[in-house]
Design a binder for these strands. Sequence first.
DNA 1: TTGTAGGCGTTATCAA
DNA 2: TTGATAACGCCTACAA
Lengths: 341, 341
Amino acid sequence: MDTITIKDVAKICGVGVSTVSRAINNKPGINEETKNKILGVIKENNYIPNNSARNLKRSETNNIAVLVKGINNLFFSPVITELEREIEKKKYTFILQHVDENQDEIEVAIELEKEKRLKGIVFLGGYFSHPKDKLEKLTVPFVLSTVGMTDNMKNMEYSSVAVDDVKESYKVVDYLCKLGHNKIAVLSAICDESIGKLRFEGYKKALSDNNIEFNEKLVYYLQSGNDRYSIQSGYNAMKRLLEEKADCTAIFASTDLIAIGACRAILENGYNIPDDYSVAGYDGLELSRFITPSLTTIRQPVENIAKETIRILFDAIDNNEGSVHKVFAGELIVGESTRKI
Amino acid sequence: MDTITIKDVAKICGVGVSTVSRAINNKPGINEETKNKILGVIKENNYIPNNSARNLKRSETNNIAVLVKGINNLFFSPVITELEREIEKKKYTFILQHVDENQDEIEVAIELEKEKRLKGIVFLGGYFSHPKDKLEKLTVPFVLSTVGMTDNMKNMEYSSVAVDDVKESYKVVDYLCKLGHNKIAVLSAICDESIGKLRFEGYKKALSDNNIEFNEKLVYYLQSGNDRYSIQSGYNAMKRLLEEKADCTAIFASTDLIAIGACRAILENGYNIPDDYSVAGYDGLELSRFITPSLTTIRQPVENIAKETIRILFDAIDNNEGSVHKVFAGELIVGESTRKI
DNA sequence: TTGTAGGCGTTATCAA
DNA sequence: TTGATAACGCCTACAA
């Protein structure tokens, strides 16, 4: 039972292929009666149009792709849900495409743009630092969403929506300082161009503004590799800290998962949170409200980010608007993992 | 700057398209020199073959698709990673395709099979209960992986790899019984054809084998809707249980996330785990080892499941082997969330 | 070793 | 309202 094509359908119905095509695509200029008949035959014979052929032939589609880097990032999941909703609200087709940690998202995007005749692209995650000439190969509008924003991005010719990682990590570390902590360790990724670096910067800035001297010895680097932001990685880093008996009363973890791993290490060693150590994270995962102790963290306004991303994207598609860099404020969520001292 | 095609490349190089095609696809029968020259021109002009055209023309590919139902299922993430590794080890192309909660995975698969000329398909998740005639529209081999197995699946003509949900949930509930608990509540999904039902069955069976009478009042149903397996959902169900002061000493949650939500509700109400309530989950997420108290749960052998899935799939592809139903045993992980009474 | 031409399954443009 | 027919961009006999 070989696969059936539009030609077969046409033959069965005794009409031309173009008529069948019109029926499939709901195009005008076709008799209701013939249309119904064709649709009936299609259903009966389980005819399904070949997407490759369609994409090849169609000059224009309503496809929007969302490229996600890193499949196991819990944080993205609600963002994606929201993006999908927004895209479908616009009557566009939502295409979710995962990008491997060690794949180049731009290459993937360029290929996909041609294959699916995309109208627009959203990039989620990753460390976006691509040379200009490479980005220019993308001919449709695209928006970077929730990607750590580096300074040189600000004057690029594409749009972005995100929170200011420096500012927000500053916010949470500053909060720790105001609670009276002045020996604050940080669990940070080494060799991370984006969020790791930015959140580390915010940490340093907050210390400095609170007249606390930056102490190199309180910086604990996460393991390298693609799993650097795993729970295990946070656990490992914290364990080292404890073993070395680093002198601190609070820990700033660069993501919630890192914080969760750190908490486990602390509790496992017989210490208490927040009595012995205050712990703060960053991301505001749903999960972080439900673990015990609940995490003090920065909640990123997921819904707004997604909505704004799509708004900007469609502004570019429909009205040819130029690039915009929208920054949302995060929200400090005070959980049970931190205390005044 | 319109997109460049193979013809343009051929023209620039002053060769025929077939020569360019040979260069791209690493086919034999081409002069090394011309090949290098062509490859050079391609790089220079950023030529990227159109996948739609390729898929359309190619009679055969090495594409294997993994269809995942439910994007926010933490459990799948390591399975996917493993599947990808195995598929690429076989020199096949791994295609990850998400399926919406309210989409029909078979429809998606049928379409994708044609579009991408798939060689095989792996289904992950979902509640697999499709009519036979529909499944027959899939012409390539496919394997169901980690999907709750219902009895009528056993004699279907397709393959599956999973753990026995009834048996494993029996295992963990039996463990609770052996600890001395005889009033065990269950947090279970209502109207779930698959895992919810199966795990509930295991629960009942364990009670019965331990001479504990099944008590309807100790069954707490999760909210309906696509988020029924969310942490919040577990939290809500447990909260109801506490409010109604249900008489029990242990809780069996049908997934780890549900258990985590339940734990939060318990602790928030001033009770202790496991002193006041023992809590057990199911899935064996990495996360569950790191929260405090760590969860007693059933760990599914993710790596073996993935490996076996691919093995069976390729057996079907390469050797035309018939259907196999492989069942792996889960592992009872004893955490800090349960105690003897 | 290379080039020409036909076709993959659609859609779009005509003319009927 | 319909039906040929020419693309879409690529691969692959087959011929040179």
